[in-house]
């Protein structure tokens, strides 16, 4: 059964002394999916990824990667995964080709396949003609693509990317995700962490981490539809006063100003009329009320609010 799963994490927990970095995180990712782990810095994403790669030992819980237990069969796991760490850890004083060759030899890429494989990777990473350049002279985007090439030199069926796009310009970020798509198209399963919410759009499955916990796990569309009710975009005059009016309304879950527009969150589609009436009875001219899909950022903020409210309630009890 586990053969179809790329990752299974069961109550995965990591404590450093008194601090719990990852708290009872459970999830299952089918093979061939791109799984995005979102959350602010310090949420526990990197610690989770490090446990899955066998760099850190879990304090409690267990995890299987490509069907192998990360604690018991670390060597089996290592042969099947590629890992790109946060800082694109490359050897600065080695050339592009030497960095690639180093990892290829460590992973035991067969000698007769070595040359064609490296040529293929250099072409993929767009580094042709730069083979002899020292890595320290490469730009951020090139280092990123070289790090990716190093991570997949042994054609692993599972790829872990920790903040793969940090410090890279938007165009290169998009190109990078194109490459990830191609790999996923070839059947590679991917787990990527990021704190850019917009990048989650590239993922098939999204997990949101906050304060060491996994607070949401779903595909992007269901997240948009289901998690936080209905979002209306309100175009009206006197938006400042309108915001105050709506805030006091019991049926409104949240109001946020987006430029001159207001984003109003309510429980259901049917409450549109009630919103309009309230505003008009307060003497505010309403131009337009339109249902919109929330961005992942909206969803994350709303989930975090929800989580914090629960925390407070728990503290009071």
């Amino acid at each position: 059964m586990s053969a179809e799963k790329a990752i299974e994490a069961i109550q995965l927990t990591k404590r450093f002394g008194d601090f719990t970095a990852v708290n009872q995180v459970s999830f299952e990712i089918p093979r061939g999916e791109i799984f995005g782990l979102l959350g602010p810095n310090g949420a526990g994403k990197t610690t989770t990824i490090r446990m899955l790669c066998g760099i850190l030992e879990p304090t409690a819980g267990e995890a299987r990667v490509m069907g192998y237990d990360v604690a018991k069969h670390a060597e089996e796991v290592k042969q099947r995964i590629g890992y790109m760490s946060q800082k694109f850890s490359l050897y600065d004083d080695l050339t592009v080709y030497e960095n690639l060759g180093f990892y290829a030899n460590l992973y035991g890429v067969p000698r007769e396949k070595l040359k064609p494989r490296l040529a293929e990777l250099i072409a993929m990473a767009g580094l042709r003609g730069h083979e002899k350049q020292l890595t320290r002279d490469l730009s951020g985007a090139w280092r990123q693509r070289l790090a990716l090439a190093c991570a997949i030199v042994h054609e692993p069926p599972m790829l872990f990317l920790d903040e793969p796009t940090a410090g890279v310009d938007p165009v290169s970020r998009r190109e990078f995700w194109e490459m990830i798509y191609q790999l996923a198209g070839q059947g590679v399963s991917v787990l990527a962490t990021t704190h850019y919410m917009d990048e989650a759009e590239f993922c098939n499955v999204i997990g949101m981490m906050y304060r060491s916990r996994l607070i949401a796990l779903s595909d992007p569309d269901s997240l948009r539809e289901g998690v936080i009710g209905v979002l209306f975009e309100v175009d009206c005059q006197e938006p400042g006063r309108a915001e105050l009016v709506l805030k006091d309304l019991p049926l409104v879950q949240d109001v946020a100003a987006h430029g001159v527009l207001l984003h109003v969150q309510v429980a259901s589609e049917k409450q549109r009329a009630e919103l309009e009436q309230t505003l008009q009875s307060n003497g505010i001219v309403v131009e337009r009320i339109e249902r919109i899909l929330p961005s992942l950022e909206d969803i994350f903020v709303s989930l975090v609010d929800h989580e914090n409210r629960q925390h407070k309630r728990a503290d009071k009890d």
Binding site: E75, S89, L90, Y91, L106, C150
Partner: peptide, 13 residues
């Protein structure tokens, strides 16, 4: 310091 040790740990070395 460079973080490359972490990268080495995930290899079969």
């Amino acid at each position: 310091e460079q973080g490359t040790l972490e990268q080495l740990i995930v290899t079969p070395v």
